[in-house]
Write a protein that binds this DNA or RNA. Structure first.
Lengths: 209, 209
DNA sequence: GTCTATATATGGATAGAC
DNA sequence: GTCTATCCATATATAGAC
């Protein structure tokens, strides 16, 4: 029974605990002991359910990636206008970045870890990373029709994600460098929710500078 | 003797090896054994020179942070125009991001690690993170004089760093999602070196969209 | 299914010879 | 200053009772 009032099975409690610990500490920093404590069970039971740390991690990472990229996939392949997609993307990732900052850091950090075969493997699985093709096509159409300035879809996607996610990922460093409090950071991110889409859309629709 | 032909002291070789291993694997993933091997010496000698893994890491992290933020500090407090600073910043961090991708990942990852007291401490030390004040003032002056559109200096800095650094940090994920080869990634980054400053400067100098 | 106890491996760190 | 050998703590994983 967690704070939702819903009774979770042992397996579910383990997965929830593992997600919490792995996201906070990463694979190398996580301890099976801490996961067991967090789940309120015994270390041995972790192995009974998931056999090894690797396998448990794999489950957590796959679920995290699917969850984190799910909204990206949905937005990219929706029927919305380009303008609308940019707004939704920024809103989604900035909101998540404020409320659950660990997920983004977790996924990106683990993707950079060397000798982590499964991470690469999982990211190659169907349905984990979004299909970029629909978005690419949509951009091409808009450009061809002369409705937006010519732009490379890959560059545009890097712009959007960079502007939204970088502050979340580099948060400790940025707050320190810029001298911003936790509250100040949240305010800055709230500003960005309006600022970034405007900036992107301006650069697409305005005459060249 | 490394490939520069310069004879390094044992201490220097250890530091070089430690930097390589820590940057690649992070604190938790790094093994003293691997550092010793990389330096061509014995594990015991690591402790003779640096006493503990923590202390060795601290040296490496401080040096890495100083090196990585050094150019940022220099650029921010230089006498260059705003336009010029933006161009130099982007050039600096995109070039470094292509040639030495591990440093950015290392610093940001470690800054996010929980229970790593020294990281916070080191970042608070004088001369590690750049002083943001000169840049803030310069922006304020430009805005006051009506030479650029009103802009929040913190937002601007997050924009610049996000646009330049995010692709470097999220590289494995981005390449996979966008379907880009290593060579393609380098080309994309080269494009960004021109693209980002233009984008930033446009948004500062052009009439509002 | 869940626990206690234990096996086995490995990591950081130290002792002591040279 | 550098090495070999070893200590000690801790991590993952398993055995076996209940």
């Amino acid at each position: 029974m967690d704070n939702t009032g819903i009774v979770l099975s042992t397996e579910e409690r383990i997965l929830a605990a593992a997600a919490k610990v792995f996201r906070l500490r990463g694979f190398d920093g996580a301890r099976m002991r801490e996961i067991a404590d967090e789940a309120g069970i015994n270390k041995a039971l972790l192995h009974y359910y998931f056999r090894s740390k690797d396998l448990l991690f794999e489950r957590v990472f796959r679920a995290s990636a699917a969850e984190y990229f799910g909204s990206l996939r949905t937005i990219l392949r929706s029927e919305a206008t380009l303008r609308e997609k940019v707004i939704r993307l920024c809103d989604q990732y900035i909101t998540t970045g404020i409320e659950q900052p660990y997920i983004a850091v977790f996924i990106i950090t683990e993707a950079n870890r060397k000798g982590a075969g499964f991470v690469t493997r999982i990211q190659s699985e169907e349905g984990v990373l979004p299909d970029f093709e629909p978005f690419r096509l949509q951009i091409a159409e808009e450009v061809a029709a002369g409705r937006i300035r010519p732009v490379n879809p890959e560059q545009l996607m890097m712009d959007i994600l960079g502007l939204c996610l970088f502050p979340v990922i580099a948060r400790p460093m940025m707050q320190r460098m810029l001298g911003v409090s936790d509250e100040g950071f949240r305010e800055a991110m709230a500003q960005r929710r309006d600022r970034i889409p405007k900036m992107i859309i301006d650069s697409l629709y305005n005459p060249a500078g």
